[in-house]
């Protein structure tokens, strides 16, 4: 790299990381100040871990993200299989457009539009509150689905179609052929899709804000509430923990990814051999 390129990238990375570094540093500040560092302490971490409402919201976020991930991954994979086998061009194009909508639409529109539906249905049944955990789960599944579908679909298109046919010619039931041949082939796409769904769900604020009731508060909604008042470095402590956990997950994912593709290749070879033996 030329020195000018190096300088440029360095400046960009300083811009990208300065706020994060400041956050990390001030989470260990002894005093309440967010701009003058007076001494090192774990005070804010202690306060964070005794803040039950925040811990509760973290638990809620994890429950919601896990549920949304499982549902959207299964439904999205099945949908991708369906789209892949679809021969009607217009139906394919229509599904493609509809699937794009939640990704392109501003979050606030997705949130508002679903909220209107839920409120309307709630009124029809004259429920006192129409927004709760379930409406939030529906919203999260809806905005996660496109990411799963668009991760799995390319893997299906890359797949050697003859393999599936060969498996069935050799006596596999379609069901068995799917688990023996197709699934291992598209698994990396499913895993990436699931990880994307999980992180998107965990991170989402805007859509959750419009579709959540009072009974179920997620972490981003809790953070929003906290930043409405004056903020203590407690929130910085929380951000620091989130940062390191996500960083660890990111690195782990990279490791698994490399490992996975190697294993997958071996597995593929094996299953091909198995098929030939049968």
């Amino acid at each position: 790299m030329k020195w000018s390129s190096k300088l440029y990238t360095t400046l960009i990375f300083i811009f990208l990381f300065a706020p994060i570094v400041i956050l990390l540093v001030f989470s260990f500040n002894e005093a309440k100040s967010l701009s003058v560092f007076s001494g090192f302490s774990f005070r804010w971490y202690e306060e964070l871990f005794s803040d039950e409402a925040t811990l509760e919201s973290l638990k809620n976020s994890l429950i919601l993200a896990l549920s949304a991930t499982v549902i959207s991954t299964v439904m999205g994979t099945v949908a991708a299989l369906g789209i892949y086998r679809l021969r009607k061009k217009w139906y394919r194009a229509l599904l493609n457009t509809v699937t794009n909508i939640p990704m392109i639409n501003p979050d606030i529109i997705t949130g508002i539009s679903m909220m209107l539906l839920f409120v309307f249905v709630g009124r029809m049944f004259s429920a006192s509150t129409s927004l709760n955990f379930w409406t939030m789960l529906i919203a999260h599944v809806t905005f996660c689905l496109p990411y799963v579908i668009f991760q799995v679909l390319p893997k299906l298109n890359q797949m050697d179609g003859d393999l599936m046919e060969a498996a069935q010619d050799l006596g596999c039931t379609p069901f068995r052929a799917f688990f023996k041949v197709t699934l291992p082939e598209i698994l990396p796409g499913i895993i990436t899709g699931a990880i994307m769904a999980f992180t998107l769900s965990l991170d989402d604020f805007v859509i959750s804000y419009f579709t959540s009731g009072n009974d179920f508060q997620t972490l981003p909604i809790r953070i929003y509430g906290m930043t409405k008042k004056t903020v203590t470095p407690k929130m910085y402590a929380l951000a620091t923990i989130i940062f390191f956990v996500t960083l660890a997950l990111l690195l782990l994912n990279n490791l698994v990814d490399n490992d996975d593709s190697r294993k997958l290749r071996e597995k593929k070879k094996k299953s091909k051999a198995e098929l030939l033996e049968e």
Partner: peptide, 23 residues
């Protein structure tokens, strides 16, 4: 393909398209 697509088609109709109509 139809059977595989039914759940998602229904879901995206109710939770993507209908909400936009509601706006």
């Amino acid at each position: 393909a139809g059977a595989l697509l039914a759940p998602y088609s229904l879901w995206s109709l109710i939770f993507i398209l209908v909400p936009l109509v509601f706006v």
